[in-house]
Design a protein around this nucleic acid. Structure first.
Length: 799
DNA sequence: CAACCTCTAATTTTT
DNA sequence: TTAGAGGTTG
């Protein structure tokens, strides 16, 4: 009877999830026995579907799939017969089948984007109905904020009204720190510092750690000082930057084991999406919250890790594999086989990855087209012409097409060429809603209201519109706030008590009374009304009108849009009060209007932005050495070239039906003409997989001869542009000029460290370092006549 | 404080 | 090339 029961149960469950393929089902039914599950899901393999089904299964049936060793209570011959009859659904027998089902509130699902979180939540709710909204589904940041709010009393000196500083705010604060420390502002730029500090935070390195590591090195010590001050000033402003949100949470959990225990005890299953993108701090958070990964289901694809430069550490997904139960889903439902073949042939050149191959499920697609164009302009024209042609010949819609490029700067030419043919297009991800000046202005008003210590926001609005408050006064207020430990706004209110800012008192007092009026209004009215009130009372319009009618109108329109968003959120929250803090938090963590507007047009975006999306027809453009792969990445080491390759893999796997790969022999870069060899990624694709329609002269497989051809034909050194004046801050590697050589086509040359070499333009030099990546040899050469550190890409010969 | 000039640096950006 | 920042001037 037990055997019959187990068999019937299995069949019923299999039937309920019949839409999934065997690999996906295996993932859904994987037992919850305290072993981490790692689900490697290739591009286009139905990852979200699998995860969503898994969560629904856990909620409904818990750990039902493994055979039971005893019959559940109440089961009778009659019930068993019904189960076996095959006409009923598993759901009808849920109480006999379910084994320790997981209540939704004991499930945590973490994603990287709001979009992914919303989609996941929605789909699960659709599947399991009511109750599912008790699940914790959110981004790392939103989940951590939730925890921080709940245990705010454990956080030293912060209170619940804390402000979240975005990248711009963080940079402003850093700039002010550099000033305060009286450091060279050219050497210590905000962007540079933020980069380093963010890197530290991603690795859980405190200012003290950094200082210890600096061990006397002058510059490093200075950076440590900035880092220390920056953290202090954040605290004084009752503010967190994006990285702090994660870091402070981890610290909170470490310092308060009772909290950690409470939370990790609560969650019976933790699901992390895009696991390959977790940084060290995020991993630590996951580790704590999932009882040392016991309750973890990590979903991701090492081949799609493209955020290493932001601290994402691919090692997490690679290493977890040794202790976890690993499952792979590889059947691709998105693209034609011809596209899959190209994708596979590129990605297999990476060494640091799990060996796997995407398997196509849709056959008979046309060959991938490759076109090496004469110039960047030709490339643009080719794309525009092709769009136009396919719209005409195949009745395609403009919205079927997407152009993917490596850098934003490339978009211009495509815009130009599309416009010329009257083809509508849209650029995704360029200017984000919440980054607009007027939105930030309005938010700054709201932030100061909620958190009077927020010095960065205070700075922004104290003289907006103009009230005759100058830079010096603002600096002074900041100083006074720092010294007295009072909030910036408090200083403003009491400006008469401070000699140093008395001169600006009329402006300051009018600002203070304005804010008081606004505060009074805020206490009685919802956020949406408040926005309108501020816009009118503060008279932001008077400032915007100076930029012209049109700009002013559009700024006001955007503020109106912000108001609508607030109104909508208020409505959504129903009976629950919707507070200013709720709104501000959301604005800080949501990138504004998440949905891509559906107006028909060709989509233009960077490859990074395209991750997770799919399009019928895709152009991957600018496939040239130095551009894609980017020159900044392959100089340093092999690991970064692999990330570029993954990026290329991501680009290629976006295409469902048609894929075009293009590059340009000649391109304007920084105002100079450059001649780049064809991307190695093109060369990694077997020729028979590509329909090469390049003009015969430049069918581009002989990279090295292409360089020489152009150097001869044009009289322009290929090296010219790259060598122009590339300086990388902190480039403390061996001094010298770097150069790369195509080993394959030169064939007979090999180099050793110390070899003397000669170059057409740069003369003689000594080989300092050699890195082999693929069939490319990167030489670091100290050229005798250069003192400065330069990077060139060109050809040298042995002396 | 706006308008103009000069200099400089230049990937990718889920939150 | 070109956008943005910083400095100078009326």
């Amino acid at each position: 009877m037990l055997e019959r029961y187990n068999k019937a149960k299995r069949i019923l469950l299999e039937k309920e999830y019949a839409k999934l393929n065997p690999e996906q089902k295996q993932a859904v039914f994987a037992p919850c026995d305290g072993t981490a599950l790692i689900l490697r899901a290739g591009a286009g393999t139905g990852k979200t579907t699998t995860v969503v089904n898994k969560i629904a299964y856990l909620i409904k049936y818990g750990d039902a799939y493994p055979p039971s060793d005893s019959l559940p209570a109440g089961i009778t011959e009659e019930i068993l017969k019904l189960m076996e009859s095959g006409e009923a659904k598993a759901e009808d027998f849920i109480k006999y089948i379910a084994n320790n089902p997981i209540p939704p509130y004991r499930i945590l699902a973490v994603t990287f984007t709001n979009k992914a979180a919303n989609e996941m939540k929605e789909r699960i709710c659709d599947m399991v109905g009511s109750g599912a909204e008790d699940m914790w589904v959110g981004t790392f940041h939103s989940v951590c904020i939730k925890i921080l709010h709940r245990y705010i009393d454990r956080l030293d000196r912060f209170n619940g009204n804390f402000t979240i500083y975005d990248t711009d705010d963080a940079k402003s604060l850093l700039k002010s720190c550099v000033k305060q420390l009286d450091l060279n502002e050219k050497e210590f730029t905000p962007a540079y510092l933020l980069n380093i500090i963010s890197g530290c935070k991603n690795k859980m390195m405190t200012p003290e750690d950094f200082e210890n590591e600096a061990s006397g090195n002058f510059k490093q010590t200075k950076i440590a000082q900035v880092y220390t001050l920056y953290q202090r000033r954040l605290k004084e402003s009752n503010a967190l930057d994006f990285d702090d949100i994660i870091n402070h949470t981890v610290k909170l959990l470490k310092d308060n084991p009772d909290v950690a225990e409470r939370l990790s005890g609560r969650f019976r299953q933790v699901i992390v999406d895009e696991f390959q993108d977790t940084n060290d701090a995020q991993y630590e958070f996951v580790d704590i919250i999932s009882c040392g990964c016991k309750n973890l289901c990590a979903v991701g694809d090492d081949d799609q890790s493209i955020y290493g430069w932001r601290g994402a550490n691919i090692d997490h997904i690679m290493n977890l594999g040794s202790t976890a139960r690993c499952l792979t889903i590889n059947r691709n439902y998105r693209s034609y086989d011809s596209i899959i073949d190209v994708a596979n042939s590129i990605i297999k050149n990476n060494r640091y990855r799990f060996e796997k191959e995407l398997r196509a499920n849709i056959f008979g697609g046309e060959k991938v087209t490759y076109n090496c164009c004469e110039s960047d302009y030709e490339e643009g024209r080719y794309v525009a012409d092709t769009v136009e042609r396919l719209v005409r010949e195949e009745d395609r819609k403009y919205s079927d097409f997407t152009v993917l490029y490596r850098t934003n700067a490339q978009s211009r030419i495509f815009e130009e060429c599309l416009m010329r043919l009257g083809i509508p297009y849209k650029i995704v991800g360029s200017l984000r809603f919440y980054e607009r000046q007027e939105i930030k202005d309005m938010l700054a008003y709201l932030r100061v209201l909620a958190n009077p210590s927020d010095i960065i926001s205070l700075r922004r609005i104290i003289n907006l519109p103009k009230r005759g408050i100058g830079q010096t006064t603002v600096d002074m207020i900041e100083n006074l706030a720092n010294m007295t430990g009072r909030s910036g706004f408090d200083i403003v209110k009491n400006c008469e008590n401070f000699e140093s800012i008395k001169r600006a008192r009329s402006g300051l007092l009018s600002f203070a009374s304005l804010m008081n009026k606004i505060a009074a209004f805020a206490s009685e009215n919802p956020v949406s009304e408040l926005i309108k009130y501020i816009s009118d009372t503060a008279d932001l319009q008077s400032e915007y009108i100076k930029e012209g009618e049109d700009i002013c109108a559009s700024r006001l329109e955007n503020i109106g849009e912000l108001m609508n968003m607030a109104a909508e959120l208020e409505q959504q929250s129903g009976d629950e009060p919707y507070t200013l803090s709720d709104f501000l938090e959301r604005m800080a963590l949501v990138s504004g209007i998440d949905e891509m507007e559906d107006d028909a047009g060709v989509t233009l975006m960077t490859v990074h932005t395209s991750k997770g999306l799919e399009f019928p027809i895709v152009f991957v453009v600018g496939l040239e050495e130095t551009l894609f792969p980017s020159i900044r990445n392959f100089i340093e080491d092999e690991k970064e070239i692999e990330e570029e390759r993954r990026l290329c893999y991501v680009a290629v796997t976006r295409a469902k039906e048609k894929l075009f790969l293009t590059c340009a022999n000649r391109r304007m870069t920084y105002g100079k003409t450059s001649y780049n060899p064809v991307s190695r990624f093109i060369k990694e694709v077997p020729e028979n997989l590509l329909n090469d329609i390049s003009t015969p002269l430049h069918n581009g497989f002989e990279t090295d001869s292409t360089i020489e051809h152009f150097e001869r034909a044009s009289g322009v050194s290929f090296a010219n542009f790259v060598s122009s004046n590339y300086k990388k801050p902190d480039f403390s590697k061996a001094a010298g000029v770097k150069s790369f050589v195509q080993r394959e086509s030169r064939g007979n040359q090999s180099f050793d460290i110390g070899d003397r070499v000669t170059h057409k333009k740069f003369g003689e030099g000594t080989v300092g370092n050699i890195t082999v990546s693929g069939d490319m040899t990167v030489l670091t050469v100290d050229f005798d006549k250069f003192g400065r550190k330069n990077i060139i890409s060109s050809v040298v010969s042995k002396l």
